[in-house]
Design a binder for these strands. Structure first.
Length: 423
RNA sequence: GUGGCCAUAGCUCAGCUGGUUAGAGUGCCAGGUUGUGGCCCUGGAGGUCGCGGGUUCGAAUCCCGCUGGCCACCCCA
């Protein structure tokens, strides 16, 4: 019988990594809540239409990256590839925005994309994100960037390169798309294969091409297609970011892959991640998404960040806190005969709040004490024949290498004194 | 989805141009110490050589397919 392995593109989160992720997730929660964002959780499966309508039919995500299946009633469902559409659906569908505006929410959870896996790109991955729904002021674009900025700072991650751009409104984008097509069409013969395809499917993507960089340099600028309102909006965002002390790099070629963005878009890059995976996450304003999903027009802005990638950077930078030992106390019997007495003492210690491992296996005492070091315990409580006879225990300070025999009544006090003293 | 590299013990890896019982380090278990750890010594367990087929007298080694990982592209988290 072959062993069953985790499905392709998925990974198990073992205790050590779990601890690091918890640190990251808790840090994000703390920063988001310090700005008044509240936690939300939405389903992992959604109607396929949520993404085909929201994210855009001709985007890569919807075209070829979704895990889609039919339920027993023949409805098409999809494992969510991103979080914004579902969150907006949840907030507007429940009329949360009728109570306060804007609605500020944060979330964390698994997402799924069927791309070829490699480091930092898995079928199942984790994102933390926030959405600010119900108001269109540029100050809120700056606010969410500031949340992310503080989040990275709280993790101790330096060297973040924040890229910002404005895509303008739908009309601006249509105008720009036309300008790009006008520019590239005469050059079509000299384009690379990918670009020739992009010219007809998704002209904005032409700006991403590395091979035709020379042509990109001469392409029309997005900024020139923006109307007055979008220019003012973006100028205000840049001003607010500067006021917040955030270094934003204007990148006229930054075009995010999802159709629903309008005006402000941004991405966070870091150089310790190699090439294709240099993006830690991004976001932007998506004032048009609500209507695409059938809700009243509602302005909104938000971001999503990749937990696994950020963890890779934090690890490379050495900012991940050391893992806590599994237990601070180990209680062991000398022989199996003292198992019950030892178990009783372990209960006392746990009641007193000490994380305690019990080892009453039938093996040599020195092996059990070796185990104490392995779980990270700083105190060993040893119970043998003599101790049972006189209702006492040997309390050994594993760091100080000293020990004493104490009555059970003094066990807790003795152990907590040692634990308190060394920490 | 396209192209390339890789897959040997729990972990990190060696195994030359196919040759007999597949190795090391580390970890694990045990003994040295019939009640005392992080060092040391000794011994032991543990491997369908990713899976399936083919070539050959003989395959961990060569060929094909599959699965999985990694890298690049695509794109993004």
């Amino acid at each position: 019988m072959p062993e069953i392995a985790a499905p392709k593109g998925t990974r198990d989160i073992l205790p050590e990594e779990f601890t690091a992720r918890r640190w990251l997730l808790e840090t994000h929660r703390g920063v988001a809540e310090s700005f008044g964002y509240r936690a939300i959780e939405t389903p992992i499966i959604e109607a396929t239409e949520l993404f085909s309508r929201g994210v855009g039919t001709e985007t890569d995500i919807v075209e070829k990256q979704m895990f889609t299946f039919e339920d027993r009633g023949g409805r098409s469902l999809t494992l969510r590839p991103e979080g914004t559409a579902g969150t907006l659906r949840a907030v507007l569908g429940s009329h949360l925005d009728q109570e306060v505006r804007p609605v500020r929410v944060h979330y964390a959870g698994p997402f799924f994309r069927a791309e070829r896996p490699q480091a930092g790109r898995q079928h199942q991955f984790t994102q933390v994100g926030i959405e600010c729904i119900g108001e269109g002021s540029p100050g809120l674009d700056a606010e969410i960037v500031e949340v992310a900025w503080r989040f990275f700072r709280a993790l101790g991650i330096t060297g973040i390169r924040l890229q910002v751009n404005s895509l303008g409104g739908p009309e601006d984008r249509a105008r720009y798309r036309a300008a790009l097509v006008d520019y590239y069409t005469p050059l079509e013969a000299s384009l690379c294969d990918d670009c020739r395809r992009r010219l007809h499917t998704n002209p904005l993507r032409l700006l991403d091409c590395k091979r035709d960089a020379g042509l990109v340099a001469g392409a029309p600028l997005l900024w020139d297609s923006l109307d007055r309102a979008s220019r003012d909006h973006f100028t205000a965002v840049l001003r607010d970011l500067e006021a917040a002390g955030i270094d934003a790099i204007r990148n006229d070629r930054l075009v995010r892959g999802l159709d629903y963005y309008s005006d402000t878009v941004f991405e966070f890059w870091h150089d310790t991640l190699q090439g294709a995976q240099s993006s830690l996450g991004g976001g932007g304003r998506y004032d048009g998404l609500a209507e695409l999903l059938g809700f009243p027009a509602t302005a909104a802005t938000g971001y999503a960040l990749g937990v696994e990638r950020i963890l890779m950077v934090a690890r490379a930078l050495g900012t991940v806190p050391g893992i806590e030992p599994a237990a601070e106390t180990l209680v062991c019997s000398v022989e199996p005969g003292q198992a019950e007495a030892a178990a009783g003492m372990a209960r006392l210690l746990r009641d007193a709040g000490a994380r305690t491992v019990l080892d009453v296996a039938d093996r040599r005492l020195d092996r059990k004490l070796r185990g104490a070091g392995r779980v990270g315990a700083r105190v060993a409580v040893i119970v043998g024949e003599n101790e049972v006879a006189e209702d006492s225990a040997v309390v050994r300070d594993l760091d100080g290498r000293s020990q004493q025999t104490v009555p059970i009544a003094e066990l807790i006090a003795t152990v907590t004194r040692i634990l308190g003293g060394t920490s």
